[in-house]
Design a protein around this nucleic acid. Structure first.
Length: 376
RNA sequence: GUGAAUGUAGCUCAGUUGGUUAGAGCGCUAGAUUGUGGUUCUAGAGGUCGCCGGUUCGACCCCGGUCUUUCACC
């Protein structure tokens, strides 16, 4: 993987860059649709590519390991071959899911034991076997196995957790560096900054992660319950320490406003379930504000779903029809909502990139923020 | 025709020896959702308790009448 920093904004820390992987290039800043079990829920890859214009998607180690399982993915020749997506894939390590989904999880120095949310079976994830799993999946970018403490964690817990994450990182890196990709293309490994909402811990963690000199770095443990302003404060602090010539990935964030604010702070990569999960349930983000498509007020509004939207669904379907589909519980509603939101997110980061290249990003961001958070 | 049931929120139903602002689920109307279990939470609106009369300090509840629906019998 290579990263080329192409433009830096004059009035903020926003940057435009290019990541090159063996599965193609990624223009940053970028949003990565979440494809947990190897699919972007409800959307064909034809549309993810051509309509939404996604350049990279996520997969999830925890989910893919449990189902369909590593034997199947290995037999298929990796996730790209299995699901037919031929552009880059990033896999989350499963650390977050072990803590948010599974039952009876137990942390030890060795790793995390947990019970599957599917059948209750018992499993152990370690920094080493999570590398092996991501080798089998064949992710272009794999993530370190970390612990993600809640946003309201106390200092002592946050510090203990961060220190464990750092020790796990060293083990994961050692294993990564001593193993080879399985399918003939290169893979890279991003470490993750933790430290909850404590400046001191975030500083320590960012310095530790930066010292590893990897090809890209991630910021985890944010947007997990802490106030939004605290998230921005932590990102600003961490980005002042992480190297400028490596991509920075803010995990799990966020709303359209969160994304613009964090681009301004120098973040290059984002992923979030919000466009898909909320889209499936009728909450649509647009350049002019947020629409809840279940609202009664759309029942006889036959204008296009989003007149300035870039997805075909925005022009082909009316608001009234989409409301009808949501109220009726029609699966097409979920598909339309997901496509619209993802296309909008990709438009948003693409537009941010163009404004950075033009040198007008900061002003554009200030103009956009009140619009993005208004309700239609 | 006779007998027995039934009637409470838009729907399906609880309800108390007769006691103050009559409840639930679903639906409806809104809000939430940040490294995804195709969701899940939260709040709100909505009822002259079939109708008429009676008993009682007080009736959704007891009594009489009447109408509705259902079942059984002749």
């Amino acid at each position: 993987m290579k990263f080329e920093l192409q433009h830096t904004d004059t009035n903020s820390n926003a940057r435009a860059g290019k990541i090159t992987t063996d599965h193609g290039e990624i223009q940053t800043p970028i949003f990565m649709p979440v494809g947990t079990v190897g699919s972007v829920k409800g959307v064909h890859f034809r549309d993810v590519k051509e309509d939404i214009k996604a350049q990279i998607i996520l997969g999830n180690t925890y989910h893919l390991y449990l189902r369909p399982g590593l034997d199947i993915i290995k037999s298929a020749g990796g996730l790209h071959k299995f699901n037919g997506w031929d552009r880059p894939i990033l896999t989350d390590s499963g650390g977050f899911q072990v803590f948010s989904l599974s039952e009876n999880r137990k942390l030890t120095e060795e790793g995390a034991t947990f019970r599957s949310h599917i059948d209750g079976s018992k499993h152990l994830f370690t920094p080493e076997n999570v590398v092996d799993t991501q080798r089998i999946i064949g992710a272009d970018i794999m993530m370190a196995f970390d612990e993600c403490p809640p946003g309201n964690s106390e200092y002592k817990y946050a510090r203990t957790s961060m220190e464990l994450t750092h020790r796990w990182l060293d083990r994961g890196l050692a294993h990564f560096d001593s193993t080879e990709p399985l399918y003939g293309y290169s893979q890279t490994y991003f470490p993750i900054v933790q430290g909850a909402s404590f400046r001191e811990l975030r500083t320590q963690s960012a310095e530790y992660i930066a010292s590893k000199g990897r090809e890209g770095n991630a910021i985890g443990g944010l947007a997990v319950g802490e106030p939004t302003e605290v998230m921005y404060e932590m990102v600003e602090l961490v980005n002042s320490i992480l190297p400028k010539d490596k991509p920075r990935y803010l995990m799990g964030v966020g709303t359209p406003v969160n994304i613009l604010e964090n681009i301004a702070l120098g973040v290059d990569m984002f992923d979030c379930v919000m466009p898909t999960r909320n889209g499936r349930n009728g909450m649509l983000f647009t350049a002019n504000g947020i629409m809840n498509m279940r609202n009664e007020k759309w029942k006889d509004d036959f204008s296009p779903l989003d007149p300035v939207g870039t997805s075909f669904v925005d022009q082909v379907y009316s608001k009234a029809y989409v409301r009808h589909l949501f109220v009726a519980g029609e699966m097409l509603a979920a598909q339309i909502g997901s496509m619209h939101n993802l296309a909008f997110y990709l438009w948003l980061v693409g537009e941010a990139r163009r404004k950075i290249e033009e040198g007008t990003f900061a002003a554009w961001k200030q103009m956009m923020i009140p619009r993005l958070s208004s309700r239609l």
